[in-house]
Design a protein around this nucleic acid. Sequence first.
DNA 1: TTTAGCACTCTATAGTTTGGAGTGCTAAAG
DNA 2: CTTTAGCACTCCAAACTATAGAGTGCTAAA
Lengths: 345, 345
Amino acid sequence: MTAELNDRKEQILRSVVINYIKTAEPVGSRTISRSHPGGLSSATIRNEMADLEEMGYLAQPHTSAGRIPSQRGYRYYVDDLMDLNELSEDVEEKISTSLSAGKMREIEQIIMNSTRVLSSATNQTSLIMGPQFKKSAFHQLRILPLDEKRGLVVLITDTGFIKNKVIDFQHQLSQTELQQIVSYLNQKLYGLTIDQVTTSLINELKRDLFRRLEILEQAFILLEESLKEEKQIRVFLGGTTNILNQPEFKDVDKIRRMLNLFEQEPLLFKILEDTSSEDNIVVRIGSENEFEDIKECTLITGTYRIHDKTLGTVGVLGPTRMDYGKVISVMRRLVDQLNQSLSSS
Amino acid sequence: MTAELNDRKEQILRSVVINYIKTAEPVGSRTISRSHPGGLSSATIRNEMADLEEMGYLAQPHTSAGRIPSQRGYRYYVDDLMDLNELSEDVEEKISTSLSAGKMREIEQIIMNSTRVLSSATNQTSLIMGPQFKKSAFHQLRILPLDEKRGLVVLITDTGFIKNKVIDFQHQLSQTELQQIVSYLNQKLYGLTIDQVTTSLINELKRDLFRRLEILEQAFILLEESLKEEKQIRVFLGGTTNILNQPEFKDVDKIRRMLNLFEQEPLLFKILEDTSSEDNIVVRIGSENEFEDIKECTLITGTYRIHDKTLGTVGVLGPTRMDYGKVISVMRRLVDQLNQSLSSS
DNA sequence: TTTAGCACTCTATAGTTTGGAGTGCTAAAG
DNA sequence: CTTTAGCACTCCAAACTATAGAGTGCTAAA
């Protein structure tokens, strides 16, 4: 994985990547020669660049244009050459103030703020997968009767998640019946994660069916209704218009495809879910991405946790020509802050 | 307002508008002459068109191009010439099935579905202002203790709105203390609309302060916290990418400005709020819009209500060249359905 | 009042020219 | 053996030029 290239080639590759990231223009040998004063002549650089191209790290849009990094070039850069940026005070402040646990209790609020901060700090589109509700554990279930026919189910998880849903009662229920249902459910479900509930519940149901029929029938409906909705996890987006500033998206058709993708939440979810959560930060360059629609993009993801349990994924999506150092350092900091903010609530 | 134009001119204006809406190309005299078989020659039409241009109903992108409707032309068309379309079965079905009150209790669900239906039926961007929470009346307030330090405030309005928020208790509260607070608040607030609450609450607070100090202090915080968030009303968007299909948005810069607008919820809110809710459906063509950013667009809005109380606004935003008849008839139908669905819950 | 006819205008499209940036190769210099 | 100067070559992008076609306005005849 390391150092297939000699020092000089590495320097040149690095120069090409950095330059291209900055200018979005193919980088010529003279540009590099000049930026290393007292260095090598353009002719020498040219030779090296030709080598790098043959080895697959650089590419030429056409003869007589400069070189641009290939996907492999970016990969080498990210793995071996990249420096992480210091965060600017500006960004540092935005992250720490707008995400501090202080004011906001709701997880959703925090997440939405995160998308905003992340996209504005990176000038890319940010996507954040909301907390994986179904990975959370049951903590408490309450039912508030609203009137004779309706009630409000409130579901609380160990991760501080709160969901509520209005449900209809099939038959009229007395206060004590409700009480019974609720405490029965709480007893059975306490500590289970949400995705364990559906299957285990059915088993419980079957076993206890003949004893508690009428009561459980109701309860089952309540639960099912309130859980159904939670299967889909929300993906929050920020800075979708940032792609319009990127010259690689000057084509209206590309824009359309990209924005279309952004509107399809389930797809976004799959894209984010797909990253192995082993490493903290994962960089997927170009065709390393599984999904056709983003094969010309780079996706950088990180995961955030609460009490060491992975809650969701944070991502930045942009063209392969992206400021890797900056994005990665911003994301590191953001994930840290998220972990901290969420744990303290 | 009516019939400043003779029959023939009206026919021609109508033809130009309809043609231009369909093709997005300037309409020439021959096109019209041909589409009225046995009608007038192109020369005659030309004369009339010249008149219409002088009167301000038509415009020419340049000499030797056909005519396109001016803003005034569209206005005349909408006021006097337009036919409403029958809804296609397809659309009719989408509206009635996906918005029926049956499955969905949550207002938000219904609204989000509405944006989807509206944008797909009109091929434009749809925006719907969520229910005006602060115009709803207090119905019930509950507080569920979560643990010693925290509780869940649940607020229910007469319009079936349910909002909850986790709050911290400053001091530890006993069950009975909580009970007291809640019933006191419910008693005082019942029937008030939410935007009445803040001011009247302060007065109440002051008056009762010396008697119920500790209790009310808590309660006030609870309320304030839970109300603060509700000031901002959500605007839901659908089909934002539809503008990319419109030839008037082939310019990336225009797209950027438009999409940028879509990301600024407060602005969208202002735009929607601004429509006088007297008439059911309001059409704002081009510069009739107050807001700079949409002066090249047409905004068509309608309001939906529950029990005769205006809840929110539904809008369709697109280029002035838009199928007015279709949009208006779809919106009529949608608003009807919304009123019905919301009232029945 | 309507229409045929014609000269005129303007745009969009395709084709042409040209300058410049960058390359690869060769041969000389270190 | 490595580096570099020099030069011919390639290719694109931008500017310019031609051309066809759609549409107009006006005039004079029906």
